[in-house]
Design a protein around this nucleic acid. Structure first.
Lengths: 349, 349
DNA sequence: TGCGTTTGTGTAACCGGTTACAAAGATTTC
DNA sequence: GAAATCTTTGTAACCGGTTACACAAACGCA
């Protein structure tokens, strides 16, 4: 593997000249430049980015540390990040913190010296520990982390706002006895969604202690919640699940039990997973643009990279409602919102 | 940001001793080692991985170059790669070659000097060009690339085998007039699936020139194919789409037209996307373990990394059939395979 | 006590680039 | 024609680690 010294020797110049020629500096005569580029081509020279970034004091790479690397959520996030990073000529160094705070620290430390900045989506862990394991002076943006806890800019989805909006939309459609299937108690998103729901219910004055069913974001949890409602014969005219998978599970059990959706009970979810458009009836949900969150985080980081102390405004992305068949207001027609019926009503931007 | 020289100075030792102490070499007295680790902790020293990899001549990172960074396919692939890479203590440097062969070469060159090996999923481009832009001597494994074209180990899904197996399964269930909705002509997977289908049909002797409808992997293409079949009143008792999205589009149009699936026409797809279990009836398809392909590629690369000239056996991963409601043999019962009915019949391993 | 061996530490070279500075040559200015 | 300035090139230091080698001290053995 040839180095720049090989190129210089072949071209009959010094390494300094070779470096300058290859990097397009202006103070190199055309003749020499050609000799250098020819030599580089002949030797099939590829510069060693590692060595380059050592002297340049920049790597043109940014580190991305995520709690998990799977599912639509992950790929969307990375896609959004890459969209911005690529056009800025930055590479992505990806790391998965496999659960423990310990391995999070390891992952973060391993990035030092090979990235110019970091994007971190931290688990629900001690923020102090997170900050302590962070290389000081390395521009960092947090993803989906409540602002205020640590002194770093962050980007997050406004889960509370989304849940509140969906709840209000249900109320305005005439559903008043709304039950909520909550997500895991130790999940920040789930807690925020629950809060949005209860806030909206309290403010409406319709129901002071709405039914909250426990869930864990799985399809089965949604199914179980539906069984509880049916068995308990609870007076409920709408179910708002904290995510789409639970809504899907709920929907299936309700239909199986012969309960008409949305005529007897409306159903709503959260996330707008691809499947949501294909349930029967199509699922009303809250559309979360994960890719946009990734892009926003990357843009924020880019600003920091460009100007070390750029103003760092935390960002809260507002999700939009996607009202489909499972919450139709018109109770007469059931033949609406089939899989290929893609009329969608976007209510909020 | 403190360097190892700062640590050495604080501990009152030479950089060599500091380095040895921090890396756990045995030839350091306990007293000095403690002084060094204490100094490192006090200064919050984090080693500079870039500099480290320069001398070590290894980066403990591998480069992953993919044609696109979105969808389930991508996240599954990365998940499989990470599973193996993480337990080997390797980081992932991710790169998207945005379409052009030009930018592929750029992406690959940018990795030189910061990775120990590469995993590449090349586009349908000139293999010679690909190889020429590859740093020689850098262990590389190709993903989903036909073996034989270039002299590099590769891992791929046996699309032809999967399509053949599904076609034979349909034939054995009594469907003989099978139409195929093909994928884009310039897509390797699509061509292989088509080949598997036509091979199986020819060998069966049932139909010498089966109907091939053009498609492009989109839901709409599947819908259009279904409309063609309905409008043309073609004698067809099964449709095998080259991917699930087209099968879903096809299914929706057939149902809308009042055609009973699977009684009048059976439908099958390819990929086993999450949605496949939730269509009505649930979609029979070919299960492709993308994560396994990523893991296999990473394992192959790991073997190369460990032993520069380990035997490089190309791998062809055989997909499995998932027969669900859209190809049921029993035509009497329609109430099968609803969303929450997850009985699945695994036919091949 | 003197000699060879082992052990622990420091000095300095090296990885592969970039760039400050010096020097030489070309050009301009008086 | 000499001095001042600008341009082009080379030498060598540097980025932040690792490690070959040299060397001194401690140890074992006759």
């Amino acid at each position: 593997m040839p180095t720049i010294r090989d190129v210089a020797r072949t071209a009959g110049v010094s390494v300094a000249t070779a470096s300058r020629a290859l990097n397009g500096h202006s103070n190199v005569t055309d003749g020499l430049r050609k000799r250098v580029t020819d030599a580089a081509a002949q030797l099939n020279y590829i510069p060693h980015s590692g060595a380059r970034s050592l002297t340049r004091q920049r790597s043109d790479a940014i580190g991305v540390v995520l709690p998990d690397l799977f599912g639509e959520y992950f790929s969307e996030l990375v896609r959004g990040i890459d969209r911005i990073a690529h056009q800025a000529g930055l590479q992505l160094l990806l790391s998965n913190m496999h659960g423990s705070a310990q391995s999070t620290a390891t992952a973060i430390r391993a990035m030092r010296g090979r990235v110019d900045g970091m994007l971190i989506m931290p688990p629900e862990t001690d923020p102090a520990y997170l900050v302590s394991s962070l290389p000081p002076g390395l521009p960092t943006v947090l993803i989906n982390y409540p602002s205020g806890l640590v002194d770093l800019p962050s980007v997050a989805i406004d889960n509370c706002y989304g849940a509140r909006a969906m709840t209000e939309a249900l109320l305005s459609r005439g559903y008043h006895r709304i039950a909520h299937i909550s997500g895991p108690r130790d999940n920040r998103d789930a807690r925020e969604r629950l809060r949005g729901f209860t806030d909206a219910m309290h403010e409406s004055g319709n129901e002071q202690s709405p039914l909250i069913l426990p869930g864990d974001f799985t399809e089965e949890a949604g199914a179980e919640a539906a069984r509880l409602i049916i068995a308990g014969n609870v007076a409920v005219d709408a179910v708002f699940a904290a995510n789409d998978m639970m809504a899907v599970g709920c929907l299936a059990v309700l239909r199986e039990a012969g309960i008409m959706v949305p005529d007897q009970i409306a159903v709503a979810g959260f996330d707008d997973i691809p499947l949501a458009r294909f349930t029967y009836p199509a699922l009303s949900t809250v559309e979360v643009h994960i890719a946009d969150m990734g892009a926003a985080a990357m843009s924020l980081l880019l600003a920091q990279l460009h100007d070390q102390d750029a103003p760092t405004q935390d960002q809260l992305l507002k999700p939009a409602l996607m009202m489909r068949g499972t919450t139709a207001m018109n109770h007469k027609s059931m033949r609406q919102s089939t899989a290929n019926d893609q009329r969608e009503e976007r209510e909020l931007s």
